[in-house]
Design a binder for these strands. Sequence first.
DNA 1: TTGATTTTGTACCGGTTCGGATAATATTCT
DNA 2: AGAATATTATCCGAACCGGTACAAAATCAA
Lengths: 209, 209
Amino acid sequence: MRDGTKEDKAASKPRGRPRAYEPGIALRRAGDAFWKAGYSGTSLDDITAATGMNRPSLRAAFGDKHTIYLKALADYWDLQFTAMRKALAGDLRLKDSLVRVYDASLSIYFSGDGPARGCFVVGTAITEAVEDPEIQRIIIDGFHTLDADFEARLRVARDAGELKKDADIAALALLCTATMHTIAMRARAGASRKDLRKLAKKAVGVICG
Amino acid sequence: MRDGTKEDKAASKPRGRPRAYEPGIALRRAGDAFWKAGYSGTSLDDITAATGMNRPSLRAAFGDKHTIYLKALADYWDLQFTAMRKALAGDLRLKDSLVRVYDASLSIYFSGDGPARGCFVVGTAITEAVEDPEIQRIIIDGFHTLDADFEARLRVARDAGELKKDADIAALALLCTATMHTIAMRARAGASRKDLRKLAKKAVGVICG
DNA sequence: TTGATTTTGTACCGGTTCGGATAATATTCT
DNA sequence: AGAATATTATCCGAACCGGTACAAAATCAA
């Protein structure tokens, strides 16, 4: 009585012809395509080539081009925040903690086969923001989350005596985000990973006083 | 003998049918079109609509789409650096000088009729950088000029005793550029001018110690 | 006035875009 | 085996893309 009721998790197979793709992987591949050339610069043909899916399957699975992009964008924010929070966790000194965040980001910015693509948001979403309020909102919310995560970490540091009692936590958090932004752009503009790591360390040096 | 030799500045008119447009203004309008939707997101039809020029005239005047874009990009850097250097000139205190730079940038980011478009480079060039080495180089050179201009101003401030003798000028300059970058992106993402001005002041507060 | 010169306006070309219509295929259920 | 279901594969079409050919228009020189 307990099994085969259809809601058996990974058990019971779906009814018709099985999928020839893995939705999660396919979406990431689609994201890779956007990441390289931006939203307008990526055609559905590019995406079919990247995913191996044909057009109708693509549409059935993820919707039209705009919807595919939004899903890829949400996916990226997940990746970014997961990496960031993992880097911020643990009881390192503030300075090391921040450097670890930037290192984690650099790993993302320099991921993939070709040349560095920087941040997905910076490289693809920012451009569309002016004419797409939905994307605009997703970006601004993400930036605020970035600010908030940095600020929370800085507050811990201040309470632990690593920062001066009267340090302007909010201001420092903005500079942390700003540093992330400048790294993201310079990465896409061709700066070397080594140089960007040095940049991060210098910025952290100032921020931590 | 001195006049009418054809090189008489604005004197002697050209030979054939006169232009129906002003090259400088037309190029700026073309830039406006790119500024709104990015390089790939802007069609030649968009540009003809923005400039009032028809397609063959456009090509004769500025070349193909890619060349038009490069001209518009160079034009924008000129605008940006002119505004920045004007803001940095004069003998204000460092803090006021920097705030003035960000105010000048905000004037650019919030220019135009529609919603804020942020920085032209951030909103249009960054996306293309991955697959266009020429654009990539123009961006990185521009960023370095930004860094250098800030650094020069900071050095003056240090020599004038506004900063500590052992202040890391290069690191502070990077944070100045980073602040510019984060403002540019947030502007395009829909942040209000008032909020961005407050952000700038907070950042300047930290940078100036 | 006539001819030379330059720009403009229209219309078109071949290729690409996105989305969908239709038929073939692979699997499960009965 | 046969019906039901879900995905895949091929193809189509209307719109758009960047670029160009060609003739009409506007000016200057003689």
